[in-house]
Amino acid sequence: MTATAHRSPSTPTAADTGSDDLIAVPVRHWGRWIAAVVALLSLIGLVGSLAKNPNLHWDVVGHYLFADLIFDGLVTTLWLTVAAMAVGLALGTLVAIMRLSTNPVLHGLSTLFVWLFRGTPLLVQIIFWAYAAALYKHLMIGIPFTTITFVEFDTNQLLTPSIAALLALGLNEAAYASEIVRAGIQSVDPGQAEAAHSLGMKPALAMRRIVLPQAMKVIIPPMGNETINMLKTTAYVSVIAAHDLMSNIQDVYAQNYQVIPMLVVAALWYLALTTVLSVPQAWLERRYGRGTSRSAHVSPLRRMFVGVADFLPSNRNRKG
Protein backbone atom coordinates (compact mmCIF):
# COMPACT_ATOMS: atom_id res chain seq x y z
CA MET A 1 0.00 0.00 0.00
CA THR A 2 1.39 3.45 -0.87
CA ALA A 3 1.41 6.60 1.18
CA THR A 4 -0.75 8.58 -1.27
CA ALA A 5 -3.57 6.13 -0.90
CA HIS A 6 -4.14 7.35 2.67
CA ARG A 7 -4.78 10.94 1.59
CA SER A 8 -8.35 12.00 1.09
CA PRO A 9 -9.21 12.97 -2.51
CA SER A 10 -10.42 16.44 -1.40
CA THR A 11 -6.86 17.62 -0.56
CA PRO A 12 -4.82 17.13 -3.72
CA THR A 13 -1.07 17.41 -3.26
CA ALA A 14 1.50 18.76 -5.70
CA ALA A 15 2.29 15.27 -6.85
CA ASP A 16 -1.35 14.59 -7.66
CA THR A 17 -1.94 17.70 -9.77
CA GLY A 18 1.02 16.89 -12.02
CA SER A 19 4.19 18.96 -12.10
CA ASP A 20 3.39 20.39 -15.58
CA ASP A 21 1.04 23.00 -14.18
CA LEU A 22 3.34 24.22 -11.43
CA ILE A 23 5.09 27.54 -11.86
CA ALA A 24 8.24 28.25 -9.86
CA VAL A 25 8.49 31.89 -8.77
CA PRO A 26 12.09 33.04 -8.27
CA VAL A 27 12.99 35.26 -5.30
CA ARG A 28 12.38 38.93 -6.07
CA HIS A 29 15.51 40.95 -5.35
CA TRP A 30 13.99 44.36 -4.61
CA GLY A 31 17.27 45.63 -3.13
CA ARG A 32 19.05 45.00 -6.43
CA TRP A 33 16.46 46.97 -8.35
CA ILE A 34 16.75 49.93 -6.00
CA ALA A 35 20.55 49.86 -6.15
CA ALA A 36 20.49 49.67 -9.94
CA VAL A 37 18.11 52.64 -10.23
CA VAL A 38 20.21 54.75 -7.81
CA ALA A 39 23.42 53.89 -9.65
CA LEU A 40 21.93 54.65 -13.07
CA LEU A 41 20.48 57.98 -11.91
CA SER A 42 23.87 58.98 -10.46
CA LEU A 43 25.59 58.12 -13.71
CA ILE A 44 23.07 60.08 -15.79
CA GLY A 45 23.50 63.06 -13.45
CA LEU A 46 27.30 62.94 -13.73
CA VAL A 47 27.32 62.61 -17.53
CA GLY A 48 24.72 65.34 -17.82
CA SER A 49 26.69 67.75 -15.67
CA LEU A 50 29.89 67.01 -17.61
CA ALA A 51 28.13 67.50 -20.93
CA LYS A 52 26.68 70.84 -19.87
CA ASN A 53 29.82 72.10 -18.10
CA PRO A 54 31.08 75.04 -20.19
CA ASN A 55 34.61 74.66 -18.73
CA LEU A 56 35.00 71.34 -20.53
CA HIS A 57 34.94 73.10 -23.90
CA TRP A 58 33.54 70.31 -26.04
CA ASP A 59 34.22 72.51 -29.07
CA VAL A 60 37.96 72.29 -28.30
CA VAL A 61 37.70 68.51 -27.87
CA GLY A 62 35.93 68.27 -31.23
CA HIS A 63 38.45 70.56 -32.90
CA TYR A 64 41.50 68.57 -31.80
CA LEU A 65 40.07 65.03 -31.84
CA PHE A 66 41.00 64.54 -35.49
CA ALA A 67 43.75 67.14 -35.79
CA ASP A 68 46.90 66.24 -37.79
CA LEU A 69 49.17 66.75 -34.81
CA ILE A 70 47.11 64.27 -32.79
CA PHE A 71 47.20 61.74 -35.64
CA ASP A 72 50.99 62.05 -35.88
CA GLY A 73 51.18 61.35 -32.17
CA LEU A 74 48.86 58.37 -32.55
CA VAL A 75 51.05 56.87 -35.24
CA THR A 76 54.13 57.20 -33.00
CA THR A 77 52.27 55.74 -30.03
CA LEU A 78 51.11 52.79 -32.13
CA TRP A 79 54.43 51.86 -33.68
CA LEU A 80 56.17 52.37 -30.36
CA THR A 81 53.69 49.95 -28.75
CA VAL A 82 54.06 47.34 -31.47
CA ALA A 83 57.86 47.61 -31.67
CA ALA A 84 58.37 47.62 -27.90
CA MET A 85 56.14 44.56 -27.52
CA ALA A 86 58.00 42.79 -30.34
CA VAL A 87 61.36 43.54 -28.72
CA GLY A 88 59.95 42.61 -25.32
CA LEU A 89 58.50 39.29 -26.45
CA ALA A 90 61.51 38.20 -28.52
CA LEU A 91 64.06 39.21 -25.90
CA GLY A 92 61.78 38.01 -23.11
CA THR A 93 61.53 34.52 -24.66
CA LEU A 94 65.30 34.39 -24.99
CA VAL A 95 65.76 35.48 -21.36
CA ALA A 96 63.15 32.91 -20.23
CA ILE A 97 64.93 30.09 -22.04
CA MET A 98 68.27 31.27 -20.58
CA ARG A 99 66.70 31.30 -17.14
CA LEU A 100 65.51 27.70 -17.53
CA SER A 101 68.90 26.63 -18.85
CA THR A 102 71.16 24.40 -16.80
CA ASN A 103 74.12 26.63 -17.68
CA PRO A 104 74.77 28.58 -14.44
CA VAL A 105 76.26 31.58 -16.27
CA LEU A 106 73.27 31.99 -18.62
CA HIS A 107 70.92 31.47 -15.70
CA GLY A 108 72.76 34.08 -13.62
CA LEU A 109 72.86 36.63 -16.44
CA SER A 110 69.14 36.33 -17.13
CA THR A 111 68.34 36.65 -13.44
CA LEU A 112 70.51 39.76 -13.29
CA PHE A 113 68.72 41.20 -16.34
CA VAL A 114 65.28 40.72 -14.81
CA TRP A 115 66.46 42.04 -11.45
CA LEU A 116 67.86 45.22 -13.02
CA PHE A 117 65.09 46.12 -15.46
CA ARG A 118 62.22 45.13 -13.21
CA GLY A 119 63.77 46.65 -10.14
CA THR A 120 64.24 50.23 -11.38
CA PRO A 121 61.41 52.64 -12.25
CA LEU A 122 60.51 52.79 -15.93
CA LEU A 123 60.69 56.58 -15.79
CA VAL A 124 64.32 56.36 -14.66
CA GLN A 125 65.10 53.96 -17.52
CA ILE A 126 63.45 56.19 -20.12
CA ILE A 127 65.39 59.27 -19.03
CA PHE A 128 68.57 57.19 -18.73
CA TRP A 129 68.42 56.04 -22.37
CA ALA A 130 67.61 59.55 -23.53
CA TYR A 131 70.77 60.83 -21.84
CA ALA A 132 72.96 57.77 -22.45
CA ALA A 133 75.06 59.85 -24.82
CA ALA A 134 76.43 61.58 -21.74
CA LEU A 135 77.87 58.20 -20.71
CA TYR A 136 79.36 57.14 -24.04
CA LYS A 137 79.94 59.86 -26.62
CA HIS A 138 80.70 57.34 -29.37
CA LEU A 139 79.65 53.76 -29.97
CA MET A 140 81.96 51.60 -32.02
CA ILE A 141 82.06 48.05 -33.24
CA GLY A 142 85.56 46.62 -33.36
CA ILE A 143 87.91 44.14 -31.78
CA PRO A 144 88.18 44.67 -28.03
CA PHE A 145 91.53 45.74 -26.52
CA THR A 146 92.84 46.82 -29.94
CA THR A 147 92.45 50.01 -31.93
CA ILE A 148 90.74 48.21 -34.82
CA THR A 149 87.29 49.70 -35.42
CA PHE A 150 84.81 48.70 -38.10
CA VAL A 151 81.99 51.16 -37.54
CA GLU A 152 81.67 54.14 -35.28
CA PHE A 153 78.51 56.06 -34.35
CA ASP A 154 77.87 59.33 -32.64
CA THR A 155 75.66 58.27 -29.73
CA ASN A 156 73.63 61.47 -29.89
CA GLN A 157 72.65 60.81 -33.48
CA LEU A 158 71.91 57.15 -32.82
CA LEU A 159 69.84 57.65 -29.68
CA THR A 160 67.04 59.86 -30.97
CA PRO A 161 64.14 60.27 -28.53
CA SER A 162 62.19 57.59 -30.44
CA ILE A 163 65.02 55.05 -30.28
CA ALA A 164 65.66 55.84 -26.62
CA ALA A 165 61.94 55.37 -25.94
CA LEU A 166 61.90 52.07 -27.84
CA LEU A 167 64.98 50.78 -25.96
CA ALA A 168 63.59 51.74 -22.58
CA LEU A 169 60.12 50.29 -23.19
CA GLY A 170 61.41 47.17 -24.97
CA LEU A 171 64.03 46.24 -22.40
CA ASN A 172 61.66 46.88 -19.52
CA GLU A 173 58.97 44.81 -21.20
CA ALA A 174 61.45 41.97 -21.84
CA ALA A 175 62.00 41.64 -18.10
CA TYR A 176 58.29 41.20 -17.46
CA ALA A 177 57.65 39.12 -20.59
CA SER A 178 60.43 36.71 -19.64
CA GLU A 179 58.66 35.87 -16.40
CA ILE A 180 55.38 35.31 -18.25
CA VAL A 181 57.04 33.10 -20.88
CA ARG A 182 58.92 31.17 -18.19
CA ALA A 183 55.69 30.49 -16.31
CA GLY A 184 54.14 29.37 -19.61
CA ILE A 185 56.96 26.96 -20.43
CA GLN A 186 56.95 25.56 -16.90
CA SER A 187 53.19 25.00 -17.07
CA VAL A 188 53.65 22.40 -19.83
CA ASP A 189 53.80 18.82 -18.53
CA PRO A 190 57.41 17.55 -18.68
CA GLY A 191 55.97 14.37 -20.24
CA GLN A 192 55.38 16.40 -23.42
CA ALA A 193 59.08 17.11 -23.88
CA GLU A 194 59.89 13.48 -23.04
CA ALA A 195 57.44 12.24 -25.65
CA ALA A 196 58.95 14.61 -28.21
CA HIS A 197 62.50 13.52 -27.33
CA SER A 198 61.55 9.85 -27.47
CA LEU A 199 60.41 10.43 -31.07
CA GLY A 200 63.89 11.67 -31.93
CA MET A 201 63.17 15.42 -31.80
CA LYS A 202 66.13 17.60 -30.92
CA PRO A 203 65.63 19.96 -27.96
CA ALA A 204 65.15 23.11 -30.09
CA LEU A 205 62.56 21.41 -32.31
CA ALA A 206 60.70 19.98 -29.32
CA MET A 207 60.65 23.46 -27.75
CA ARG A 208 59.36 25.13 -30.94
CA ARG A 209 56.81 22.55 -32.09
CA ILE A 210 55.60 20.95 -28.88
CA VAL A 211 56.32 23.00 -25.75
CA LEU A 212 55.94 26.64 -26.88
CA PRO A 213 52.57 26.16 -28.68
CA GLN A 214 51.17 24.69 -25.46
CA ALA A 215 52.81 27.39 -23.34
CA MET A 216 51.06 30.02 -25.51
CA LYS A 217 47.76 29.17 -23.86
CA VAL A 218 49.18 30.36 -20.55
CA ILE A 219 51.25 33.19 -22.08
CA ILE A 220 48.63 34.97 -24.21
CA PRO A 221 46.18 36.34 -21.60
CA PRO A 222 48.89 38.10 -19.53
CA MET A 223 50.69 39.23 -22.72
CA GLY A 224 47.41 40.75 -23.91
CA ASN A 225 47.32 42.67 -20.65
CA GLU A 226 50.93 43.73 -21.18
CA THR A 227 50.13 45.02 -24.68
CA ILE A 228 47.21 47.10 -23.47
CA ASN A 229 49.37 48.31 -20.60
CA MET A 230 52.19 49.17 -23.02
CA LEU A 231 49.88 51.31 -25.13
CA LYS A 232 49.14 53.45 -22.09
CA THR A 233 52.70 53.29 -20.76
CA THR A 234 54.02 54.91 -23.94
CA ALA A 235 52.56 58.13 -22.47
CA TYR A 236 55.61 58.20 -20.14
CA VAL A 237 57.94 58.88 -23.07
CA SER A 238 56.42 62.36 -23.28
CA VAL A 239 59.07 63.26 -20.67
CA ILE A 240 61.73 62.93 -23.37
CA ALA A 241 59.56 64.53 -26.09
CA ALA A 242 59.33 61.41 -28.26
CA HIS A 243 56.35 62.95 -30.15
CA ASP A 244 53.89 60.29 -29.09
CA LEU A 245 50.20 61.07 -28.53
CA MET A 246 50.76 62.37 -25.00
CA SER A 247 53.76 64.53 -25.99
CA ASN A 248 51.71 66.24 -28.68
CA ILE A 249 48.73 66.71 -26.37
CA GLN A 250 51.04 68.37 -23.84
CA ASP A 251 52.52 70.58 -26.58
CA VAL A 252 49.04 71.80 -27.43
CA TYR A 253 47.86 72.56 -23.92
CA ALA A 254 51.16 74.22 -23.08
CA GLN A 255 50.13 76.82 -25.67
CA ASN A 256 46.35 77.08 -25.39
CA TYR A 257 45.98 76.19 -21.66
CA GLN A 258 42.99 73.93 -22.45
CA VAL A 259 44.36 71.15 -20.22
CA ILE A 260 41.13 69.30 -19.46
CA PRO A 261 39.71 69.26 -23.01
CA MET A 262 43.05 68.06 -24.37
CA LEU A 263 43.22 65.29 -21.75
CA VAL A 264 39.72 64.24 -22.82
CA VAL A 265 41.03 63.97 -26.41
CA ALA A 266 43.92 61.79 -25.17
CA ALA A 267 41.64 59.62 -23.02
CA LEU A 268 39.19 59.06 -25.90
CA TRP A 269 41.98 57.88 -28.21
CA TYR A 270 43.64 55.64 -25.61
CA LEU A 271 40.24 54.11 -24.84
CA ALA A 272 39.50 53.52 -28.52
CA LEU A 273 42.88 51.84 -29.10
CA THR A 274 42.76 49.61 -26.02
CA THR A 275 39.27 48.50 -27.05
CA VAL A 276 40.51 47.60 -30.54
CA LEU A 277 43.51 45.73 -29.06
CA SER A 278 41.33 43.30 -27.11
CA VAL A 279 40.03 41.82 -30.39
CA PRO A 280 43.27 40.12 -31.56
CA GLN A 281 43.76 38.82 -28.02
CA ALA A 282 40.45 36.93 -28.13
CA TRP A 283 41.36 35.58 -31.57
CA LEU A 284 44.80 34.38 -30.41
CA GLU A 285 43.35 32.74 -27.32
CA ARG A 286 41.01 30.76 -29.52
CA ARG A 287 43.84 29.83 -31.91
CA TYR A 288 46.04 28.43 -29.15
CA GLY A 289 43.18 26.95 -27.15
CA ARG A 290 42.77 24.18 -29.75
CA GLY A 291 42.28 20.74 -28.33
CA THR A 292 41.71 21.93 -24.78
CA SER A 293 38.05 21.04 -24.44
CA ARG A 294 36.03 18.06 -25.52
CA SER A 295 33.60 20.18 -27.52
CA ALA A 296 34.36 22.01 -30.74
CA HIS A 297 35.49 25.59 -30.29
CA VAL A 298 32.99 28.41 -30.65
CA SER A 299 34.09 31.88 -31.70
CA PRO A 300 33.68 34.59 -29.03
CA LEU A 301 31.18 36.42 -31.25
CA ARG A 302 29.07 33.30 -31.67
CA ARG A 303 29.28 32.55 -27.96
CA MET A 304 27.93 36.04 -27.29
CA PHE A 305 24.94 35.44 -29.58
CA VAL A 306 24.28 32.07 -28.00
CA GLY A 307 24.46 33.78 -24.62
CA VAL A 308 21.92 36.40 -25.73
CA ALA A 309 19.68 33.69 -27.18
CA ASP A 310 19.64 31.99 -23.79
CA PHE A 311 18.18 35.14 -22.30
CA LEU A 312 15.24 35.32 -24.69
CA PRO A 313 12.06 34.15 -22.96
CA SER A 314 11.14 31.67 -25.68
CA ASN A 315 14.46 29.85 -25.39
CA ARG A 316 14.36 29.96 -21.63
CA ASN A 317 11.12 28.07 -21.54
CA ARG A 318 12.32 25.52 -24.00
CA LYS A 319 15.37 24.85 -21.89
CA GLY A 320 13.23 24.70 -18.70
Binding site: D189, G191, S198, L199
Partner: peptide, 26 residues
Protein backbone atom coordinates in the same frame (compact mmCIF):
# COMPACT_ATOMS: atom_id res chain seq x y z
CA UNK B 1 75.27 15.58 -27.18
CA UNK B 2 71.46 15.84 -27.11
CA UNK B 3 71.29 16.09 -30.89
CA UNK B 4 73.26 12.84 -31.28
CA UNK B 5 71.09 11.09 -28.70
CA UNK B 6 68.03 12.30 -30.64
CA UNK B 7 69.39 10.49 -33.69
CA UNK B 8 69.56 7.19 -31.73
CA UNK B 9 66.12 7.64 -30.22
CA UNK B 10 64.47 7.69 -33.64
CA UNK B 11 64.83 3.91 -33.75
CA UNK B 12 63.39 3.35 -30.28
CA UNK B 13 59.67 3.90 -29.86
CA UNK B 14 58.27 4.68 -26.44
CA UNK B 15 54.76 4.53 -25.01
CA UNK B 16 54.08 6.26 -21.71
CA UNK B 17 51.77 5.50 -18.82
CA UNK B 18 50.03 8.87 -19.22
CA UNK B 19 49.98 8.70 -23.05
CA UNK B 20 51.66 12.12 -23.44
CA UNK B 21 49.88 12.83 -26.70
CA UNK B 22 50.39 16.39 -27.94
CA UNK B 23 47.11 18.05 -26.93
CA UNK B 24 47.32 20.86 -29.50
CA UNK B 25 47.50 18.42 -32.43
CA UNK B 26 44.83 16.06 -33.78
Amino acid sequence: RESEVAERRREIGMVFQRFNLFPHLT
